[in-house]
Simulated assay, not measured.
Amino acid sequence: LKGVADGAIPAGSDAGGVRGGVRTLDLANQEVTLRGRLPGLERVADRLARNLRRALGTLFGQMPEVRVSALELERLVTFTSRLPQPVSLQLFRMAPLRGQGMLVVHPALAAGLLQTLFGGSLARPTPLAVRDFSAIEQRVLERLGAQVLRAFAEAWRPVEPVECAFVRSETNPQFATIVGAQDLVVRLDVDVLLDGSEDGRLSLCFANAALDPVRGQLRRAVASGEEAGGAAETSWAERMRAALAEAECEVSADLGSHLMSLREVLALKTGDLIPLRTGREGPVVVRVAGRARFLGAPGVASGSNAVRVTGRI
């Protein structure tokens, strides 16, 4: 100050000031994006989108495009104040995490699902009237909710086994309070794009405090195939191996063959015998999905023709 008073430092100088202007910081506002802050939660969201694509494809009869559009931290009152009407709100538990969560089925997706299951066409969408859902409509939407919660629980499995259990349905946000109005919640928006239909949306909302027991795990950014990611990859490989083991394939056995000229084939009549090159003990070629894999011997088991595997090709 003495330098300013003596004129050594010009009063208008920006020396020692903040370059580039002043940045406002609201210490009371905790609403932020979670992108980049909780990498583990981002991976949960991405796995949810992949799981939902298969689940919703069964309900809608076509494979939709599913993508995560938002992963935000905001106050519950902010979230509920922006909800459109009519809306299906389904409350659920996330054991062993504390508190409850809320699944929101937005009007466009609800209308598309109801129209599809009741024989309508997505090419001619019918907007939902602002009213309470009927008992049948509510059951259909809860069926959708069950698929979403199953996919959400599966998405959590590599991080923390979570069991999502349906509690009840609501249509009025005032009766769907999962935390205090000013408490922070995590909002996860998933967009569902169907051919010939208005873009739909699902939202999952749960208390930010519910993540406290697993926040450390969610903050660790582990690349796929490294450390915990390696365990996730191993788990994925095991599930893929188990799924492939349940796949059905056709198994057939060639009892024999014989070369004939076209003249001989045209001369065939009822009662003619065609000699085969296979003896009574085989070997018979056993094919799996059309490819020769085993050798066997023909026989009878439990009154039916059968082949006993004698070797591998």
Rank of each mutant, 00 (worst) to 15 (best):
V4F: 09
F92M: 10
D14P: 06
V309Y: 00
G112A: 13
G145C: 06
F152V: 02
M94E: 06
Q100M: 07
A146I: 03
E226H: 08
A146Y: 00
C205H: 03
S13V: 11
D212I: 07
V307C: 03
V140S: 10
L184C: 07
L52W: 00
P127C: 09
E281G: 03
S197V: 13
R98P: 02
T116C: 11
A242C: 12
G120S: 11
L41E: 01
F133Y: 06
V104N: 04
L73C: 11
H106K: 14
Q100C: 11
R239F: 01
G20E: 09
R75H: 04
N305P: 00
L27E: 10
F152E: 03
R47H: 01
P283S: 13
T310C: 05
T278S: 14
D14A: 15
L128T: 04
T234N: 11
L295D: 05
R150W: 00
L255N: 02
V87S: 04
L255C: 02
V192L: 08
P127A: 11
V32F: 06
A111Y: 00
E42G: 10
F133H: 02
R53T: 09
I9K: 07
T126P: 07
G120N: 12
G36Q: 11
L59S: 13
P161S: 06
A253T: 04
S235L: 14
L193F: 04
E250I: 04
L1P: 11
N305H: 05
R98W: 01
M94I: 06
P125Q: 05
S121R: 15
R43F: 04
Q115S: 15
A289T: 06
N208S: 15
G230R: 13
S257L: 10
V4L: 12
S302D: 14
L113D: 02
L41P: 00
R124W: 02
V190T: 04
E72Y: 05
G229D: 08
E250Q: 13
Q217I: 03
V18W: 07
R19E: 11
E74P: 01
S304D: 11
R54V: 13
A232H: 06
T171K: 03
A155M: 02
E227D: 09
V300T: 12
P127K: 06
R312S: 07
A209D: 07
L109H: 00
Q30R: 10
V251I: 01
T24H: 14
T278P: 07
L259I: 15
L202I: 10
G296S: 10
A242T: 15
A15N: 15
V104E: 03
P161K: 09
E154N: 04
A129D: 10
R287F: 08
V222M: 10
Q174N: 09
Q62R: 13
V285I: 14
T278A: 12
E246H: 03
V222E: 11
S121L: 12
I274Q: 09
T171A: 12
D14W: 15
A135W: 07
A245W: 00
A11L: 13
G119S: 14
R241T: 10
V288I: 09
G216A: 09
V44R: 02
A55G: 05
M260Y: 06
S203A: 14
P275D: 11
A210P: 02
G282S: 05
V185D: 00
L273K: 07
P84N: 15
S302H: 03
I178S: 04
E264K: 08
S197C: 14
L91D: 03
P84K: 15
P158G: 07
R291T: 14
G21S: 11
P275C: 05
R219T: 05
A223G: 15
G119F: 13
